[in-house]
């Protein structure tokens, strides 16, 4: 059973923020949160899935160029694989990444989807 490995990354995974919590001793440590907006830099549709991801196949993984500059690897969700294109604007959502079997924890984290019109 693995828990701490997932738990220590809650801030990064849930909201793309660093884990910093400002305390009296570390007042300078402020949380930076990405806007979650970016574009698809590249993508690949996974048909041969590793353990823990079998139920989701086929799924699309992508390299997302965030508006702030850095790139992240994440799944692209809420889209049919054939509709994915390089350059497509996407926004961050928090989704289920995987489950540790039927009785283990559910791991949540960032994925990206085509921007929904406001």
């Amino acid at each position: 059973m693995q828990v701490s490995r997932y738990w220590r990354m809650n801030a990064q995974r849930y909201m793309m923020a660093n884990g910093g919590v400002a305390t009296a001793e570390k007042e300078e440590e402020k949380t930076f949160t990405f806007s979650g907006r970016g574009t698809i830099y590249s993508y690949s549709t996974v048909y041969d899935a590793p353990a823990g991801f079998e139920a989701y196949k086929p799924y699309v993984v992508g390299l997302i160029k965030l508006d702030e500059g850095p790139m992240v690897t994440a799944q692209i969700t809420d889209i049919d694989a054939k509709e994915v294109e390089i350059g497509m604007p996407v926004e961050m959502v928090t989704r289920k990444l995987r489950t540790e079997g039927d009785e283990g924890v559910i791991v949540y984290g960032y994925k990206f989807r085509p921007s929904v019109v406001v």
Partner: peptide, 13 residues
Amino acid sequence: NGLDEDVVTMSIE
């Protein structure tokens, strides 16, 4: 809901 959605993810959004 999609395969990667549940009450947690939907409540977050």
